[in-house]
């Protein structure tokens, strides 16, 4: 019985939240990866694109709620998502057309691109905060829990409850669906293969008659879809706060690099590595160990490796360790 309690406790506080967070990071890192593969630069504005897409989704959600449209037990934001995605695509293509294309034609260095993306980041952050304000907004509605802790306890008779939020299930399902779509697109469609060809060998792709402007546009569209989805899922799971996205940039970059920069599979893997490390290292194991330990023995202290305050720092510590041990990432990617 104690053993089962320990497992449930672990699932409730580590496995489920970490998997959800990992899915959000993976989607964000995929967006960074797509842009890195095609335009070959680290896009500092990606997290603000997430924020932008999530904000538009939120606006549409409010509109739908005001006219009384709901998605039943699911959050209304899911219905609003297409609007957010379209808005993010419009934003991404606008930056491509007005900002990045110029440097692309000049074949500017990746560092120039990165600095320019900082400018884009400023503009997007300003626009978002101007439109929605810096405050915190609740995105989720509908049925909050799929399984409530109390119900779980009653059903199983265990001391520990397992609560699964609707948003957590949606996040994981959406991430799987999106990753599946992305791989289907990249490996099964003509445009997707052309994208891979372009990223593999740009000159040869041009010789083969692949139109670079089209490829770049598709890359931005994919990045915008991924950004809106990850931003919205994060907002649903926690809440929407414009300032948070700047902080998310680091774990997302870390996920993309740790997994192997430029590798889609690596981005997903990296997202989960970062998420699990963050949660595992900041979880207090005291209760967990108490259940497993024989008799009434109780450990002293919280048995927490790192204070939760350092959650965001962990992603970076992992990044440093990977840089030192295996600079190309877990799955060998092109060195950034």
């Amino acid at each position: 019985m104690d053993f089962l309690n320990a497992i449930v406790l672990f699932c409730n506080f580590v496995l489920v939240p970490a998997t959800t967070y990992g899915a959000q990071l993976a989607l964000g890192a995929l967006g960074i990866t797509v842009i890195y593969r095609i335009l070959r630069f680290a896009n500092f504005a990606h997290s603000e694109l997430m924020s932008w897409g999530a904000m538009l989704t939120l606006f549409m959600t409010w509109y739908l709620q005001s006219v009384g449209i709901h998605a039943g037990p699911l959050p209304t934001a899911l219905l609003a998502l297409p609007v957010g995605i379209l808005g993010a695509i419009a934003m991404a293509l606008t930056t491509e057309r007005t900002v990045y294309r110029f440097y692309r034609k000049q074949r500017a260095s990746s560092i120039t691109f990165a600095i320019v993306s900082v400018g884009v980041m400023f503009v997007m952050a300003g626009l978002t905060r101007f439109m929605i304000g810096p405050g915190e907004q609740v995105m989720a509605d509908g049925q909050r829990f799929l399984i409530k802790a109390v119900e779980f306890k009653r059903m199983t008779g265990l001391d520990e409850g397992l609560a699964i939020k609707t948003t957590q299930v949606i996040t994981i399902a959406a991430a799987i669906a999106m990753a599946g779509f992305l791989f289907w697109f990249l490996y099964r469609t003509r445009s997707g293969k052309a994208m891979r060809a372009f990223s593999d060998n740009e000159d040869l792709a041009l010789l083969s008659g692949i139109n670079p402007d089209r490829i770049v546009a598709i890359a931005w569209i994919l990045a915008a879809i991924l950004a809106t989805l990850s931003g919205t899922l994060y907002g649903l799971d926690k809440s929407y706060k414009p300032f948070v996205f700047m902080q998310l940039l680091l774990p997302i970059f870390a996920s993309a690099i740790v997994g192997g920069i430029g590798q889609p599979v690596g981005a997903i893997l990296g997202g989960f590595v970062i998420a699990y490390s963050e949660v595992l290292l900041t979880y207090a194991y005291r209760k967990f160990v108490t259940y497993l330990a024989p008799g009434d023995w109780k450990p002293e202290g919280l048995l927490q490796l790192l204070s939760t305050d350092y959650k965001f720092a962990i992603s970076f510590i992992i990044l440093v360790i990977v840089l030192l041990i295996r600079p190309t990432g877990i799955i060998r990617g092109k060195l950034l």
Binding site: I111, I257, A313, S315, V320, L323, L336
Partner: peptide
Amino acid sequence: ISLGLRADYLAIATLGISEI
């Protein structure tokens, strides 16, 4: 730790350090 890396990698690395 990080200066052997290419320019944009360094940017991400230093961004992380500053957060720590």
